[in-house]
Simulated scan of single mutants.
Amino acid sequence: MKVAFIGTGSMGSLLIEAFLRSGALHPHFICASNRSLQKAELLAKRHPGLRVTGSNAEAANGSQIVFLCVKPLDYPAVIQELAGVLDERQIVVSITSPVQIRMLEARIPSKVAKIIPSITHSALSGASLCIYGSRIQPEDRLLLEQLMSSISVPVAIRETETRIASDIASCGPAFIAFILQQWAEAAARHTGIGRAEAIVLGAEMLHGTGKLLTEGGFSPEELQRRVAVPGGVTAEGIAVLHSSLEHVFAGLIETTHRKYDEDLSKLDDLFGRRLLNGTADDEPD
């Protein structure tokens, strides 16, 4: 199975490396393209047999799956470049949340899916968010989820849930890392513990907590009950968190959704509203 990756920036490279590390893909069956060919060539040096090209169309031509790993506002130009080489048998996978499936299905004949990855896939873990277009058949979905299960836990969602699900699964590692950083720095300021030591303890705690929630059969509420004895230290700490964080996550969600809506508006303009309404964008006004 030939798989193309259009764009080898941060997430494109991460996906390629993860698929190769898991054994799900072999370098000889990967073709990668990038605007800066040097970035793609670095991947080829690390993984002999991986083919690189400066042409997105060349990479996509003949590939069973084409991952689009470019910035949202670059999609219209990339899709225009690929439209002439893609066919109805290929599966095109967008990895960015604001690019809507309808936008792609209106411009290319291929089957379209959207899969939102996470940096956690570099550790062969975390959830990948899977959304499927109208042309995706059950066997296509099975193929994609088998591939993603080699580096993650595929979770099928509705496209309307993309932003909030991405906040948790994709943005979440950065949010949690920020909280851990703040916690460690406060611990270092107010006690004798070193910042690095506090981060190690926190990282191991997060690793173990994740296992309890995914493999240990605990719900968040059950885990709190097991640790927070009434009247104890943990219960007092949770009371502080409850009062301090009551509005934080609502504000976080409001902010990420506002930025998402702005990106959607920009993409609607770039792709052309007439095309999205079912008319060709080269029709006369």
Score class of each variant (00 low, 15 high):
Gln100Leu: 10
Gly202Met: 09
Phe29Glu: 12
Arg163Ser: 00
Ala174Gly: 12
Leu212His: 01
Gln146Lys: 15
Ala59Arg: 03
Leu124Ala: 10
Phe19Tyr: 14
Lys45Leu: 11
Thr96Cys: 11
Ala40Glu: 04
Thr8Gly: 05
Ser97Glu: 06
Glu221Asn: 07
Ser152His: 13
Leu276Pro: 00
Gly217Tyr: 09
Arg258Cys: 08
Ala60Tyr: 06
Phe29Trp: 10
Ala198Ile: 09
Ile65Tyr: 04
Pro138His: 12
Glu254Ser: 14
Val99Ile: 09
Ile101Asn: 00
Ile101Ser: 00
Thr160Gly: 15
Ala169Gln: 03
Ser125Pro: 00
Phe218Leu: 10
Leu241Asp: 08
Gly23His: 12
Arg225Ile: 03
Leu124Trp: 06
Thr162His: 02
Ser150Thr: 14
Arg195Glu: 13
Val99Phe: 02
Ala4Trp: 02
Val66Ile: 15
Ile168Ser: 06
Glu88His: 13
Phe271Lys: 00
Arg102Gln: 10
Gln38Gly: 08
Arg35Ile: 07
Ser110Ile: 05
Glu41Gln: 15
Asp268Lys: 11
Met1Ile: 09
Gly12Tyr: 06
Asn56Val: 06
Gly272Ala: 08
Ser94Phe: 01
Glu185Ala: 14
Leu206Arg: 01
Gly7Phe: 03
Arg46Leu: 06
Phe218Val: 05
Asn61Val: 00
Ser94Arg: 01
Glu246Gln: 15
Pro230Val: 13
Ile115Tyr: 02
Phe29Arg: 09
Gly278Ile: 09
Gly84Pro: 03
Glu204Arg: 11
Gly272Pro: 07
Met1Tyr: 11
Thr120Arg: 01
Ser150Phe: 13
Ile115Thr: 01
Leu124Met: 12
Tyr75Asn: 01
Ser33Tyr: 09
Pro173Cys: 06
Ala106Ile: 00
Gly251Lys: 15
Asn34Trp: 10
Glu58Gly: 07
Leu73Val: 11
Gly278Arg: 10
Ile101Met: 05
Ser33His: 07
Ile157Phe: 13
Gly126Pro: 04
Leu43Val: 04
Gly7Asn: 02
Gly7Pro: 00
Leu213Ser: 03
Ser94Ile: 05
Lys114Val: 04
Gly216Tyr: 03
Arg163Gly: 00
Val227Lys: 05
